[in-house]
């Protein structure tokens, strides 16, 4: 089996027990993706699969044969930060930084969900287009914990990056 990680084709693990998270970190040495709880409760291991955010700790790598994985290492263009990375710096979206790769991958996945109209738990009208409000962003990012408490800065960074002037 093989995976496409940040645009590069790589081998999958020989042992089906290996999680996507461990394969990224231990075999491919892409240590940007973090192992927090390793049980699906913290979001630090969030990566994008074909553009959708998932938890790599609960994913067996073997299940993702042929899929395109994007990690935090795949977002910047050389030394040029992804606009959301720059916004996290600008808006103090982190202190220790451990949850940050997961936060950023999660927010990119969230932006495409919101743009295609996926409702959330706090959407008052299931039929209406979702808005880039703080409440919507907070709910949609609730799967990513930050023990430093930088959540307000994270929401600011996400709004600054993705919210259009019409809905900001």
């Amino acid at each position: 089996m093989s995976l496409i990680v940040n645009g590069k084709q790589v081998h999958g693990p020989a042992d089906p027990r290996v999680s996507l998270l461990d394969h990224l970190r231990e075999d491919l040495h892409l240590t940007g993706t973090k192992k927090g709880c390793n049980q699906g409760a913290c979001g630090a291991c969030t990566v994008l699969v074909d553009g959708e955010r998932i938890l790599s700790c609960l994913a067996l790598a073997v299940q993702y044969d042929g899929r395109a994985i994007t990690t935090i290492e795949g977002l910047a263009g050389g030394d040029a930060l992804h606009p959301l990375q720059a916004a996290f710096v600008e808006h103090d979206g982190f202190q220790c930084g451990y949850c940050t790769p997961g936060q950023i991958c999660s927010a990119i996945g969230m932006a495409s969900e919101l743009e295609r109209g996926v409702p959330s738990h706090v959407s008052a009208d299931l039929a209406a287009d979702a808005q880039w409000t703080r409440e919507e962003i907070q709910e949609r990012m609730s799967g990513n914990l930050c023990r430093c408490g930088a959540h307000n800065g994270i929401v600011d960074a996400i709004r600054a990056t993705f919210a259009t002037e019409a809905s900001a």
Partner: peptide
């Protein structure tokens, strides 16, 4: 759950 888990 969370959005990530609902996607999986």
């Amino acid at each position: 759950a969370s959005a990530q888990i609902r996607n999986m």
